[in-house]
Computed example of a mutant assay.
Amino acid sequence: MNKISASVGMAIVCAAAMGTAQAASENGTIQFKGAISAESCYLDSSIGDANSVIVNMGTVNSSQVGTVAAPHFTTGAGLSTADFNVVCKNDAQVSLTLKAPQAELVAGNQILRVNNGVKGEGYAQNVGVAVYSSSSSSTAYDLSKEKLLDTQAITAGQSVNVKFAAAYVRSGGQDVAPTAGVANATLPFVLEIQ
């Protein structure tokens, strides 16, 4: 009975709305974008796709941004972790190496610039992203050459797990406070398959 009443009530509301307003229509499109890969090994992540990992850094208060040597790893305050698998269809030896370009790095290759260094209103300043083996580590990776995954053998149909932690860190020095704004970064890597 309740389902019928709700349906009848909704029909009356819709009929009344249509009787008092002019109908308008707008044409639109739905776009589907992607690609099909034939690589023998690929990434399997709940967030990302076959060749990328998305790390949601969230919104962090500028007072909660630590330094490379003392990152703030607290829930919702500069901590984000990645947990994904490298899956191989055939037997393979795989490794995963970080490959940030020098122009995007500061502080001995341990801090990735945000927003490609764009300055201006709406963009965070004096902050970057550092990557660590875990949230209990204070040793940041060298983002130009560090291996997230040392060479490992993977049997056909099997996978190996890769994890890391990331934090927003001060890039303008310990005493230079970060400014608020968008803080996005992209860290290239190479998945080597042998």
Rank of each mutant, 00 (worst) to 15 (best):
A69C: 00
A70S: 04
A70Q: 08
A70G: 00
A70W: 02
P71N: 00
P71E: 02
H72V: 15
H72C: 08
F73A: 02
F73M: 09
F73K: 04
T74K: 15
T75D: 15
T75K: 15
G76Y: 00
G76Q: 08
A77H: 14
A77R: 14
A77I: 09
G78F: 01
G78W: 01
G78L: 07
G78C: 07
L79G: 08
L79C: 10
L79D: 10
L79P: 09
L79I: 12
S80A: 15
S80T: 07
S80C: 05
A82M: 11
A82Q: 03
D83N: 15
D83E: 09
F84K: 07
F84I: 07
F84G: 02
F84H: 07
N85M: 13
V86S: 03
V86F: 07
V86C: 02
C88T: 09
K89P: 02
N90H: 12
D91V: 06
D91C: 07
D91G: 05
D91I: 10
D91E: 10
A92D: 10
Q93R: 13
V94A: 05
V94C: 05
V94K: 05
S95A: 12
S95I: 07
L96D: 04
K99W: 08
K99D: 14
K99R: 15
A100N: 07
A100K: 07
A100T: 06
A100I: 02
P101T: 08
P101L: 06
P101H: 08
Q102M: 10
A103W: 09
A103M: 10
L105E: 05
L105M: 01
L105N: 05
L105S: 04
L105D: 04
L105C: 02
L105Y: 01
V106A: 13
V106K: 13
V106P: 09
A107D: 14
A107L: 08
G108V: 00
G108M: 01
N109Y: 01
N109Q: 03
Q110W: 01
Q110I: 00
I111H: 07
L112Q: 06
L112A: 03
N115E: 03
N115F: 06
N116E: 11
V118T: 12
G120R: 06
E121S: 15
E121N: 13
E121Y: 11
G122S: 06
G122T: 04
Y123V: 08
Y123W: 11
Y123K: 12
